[in-house]
Amino acid sequence: MSREPGSPTHRRYLTGYLWALGLTLIAFAAARLGGANRTLALGVVIGAGLIQIGVHLRYFLHLGFGKSQRENLVLVLIATLLILLMVGGSVWIMFDLNRRMM
């Protein structure tokens, strides 16, 4: 069996784990200590969360740009688009409605 670059190894899982752990700790620290600057803390939490989702997809779910992963990648991108439309649309409409009802 030929191994593509990016196929799972112990080292790869450990790398992913350490990245994910670091980002988790950054996010929790920001939420814990960020009372003074709420916007900044929220930005750090959201940013770290988005990066961590990328880390999980790459190191644990082995999603990549390689040929064997192309179909999965397209699927994930379409799902992401649908999710952005559903969540973004719902939040936009409902918050706008809230504001108008005030």
């Binding site: 939420a31 929220l42 969360g49």
Partner: peptide, 25 residues
């Protein structure tokens, strides 16, 4: 394995949006 890793990915969203955002008020 895919399923289990996926559940941890969803948890990243939960602890960010629900718990951490929640504690920031």
């Amino acid at each position: 394995a895919l399923y289990w890793h996926f559940l941890d990915l969803i948890w990243v969203g939960i602890f960010s949006i629900v718990y951490l955002r929640g504690t920031l008020g």
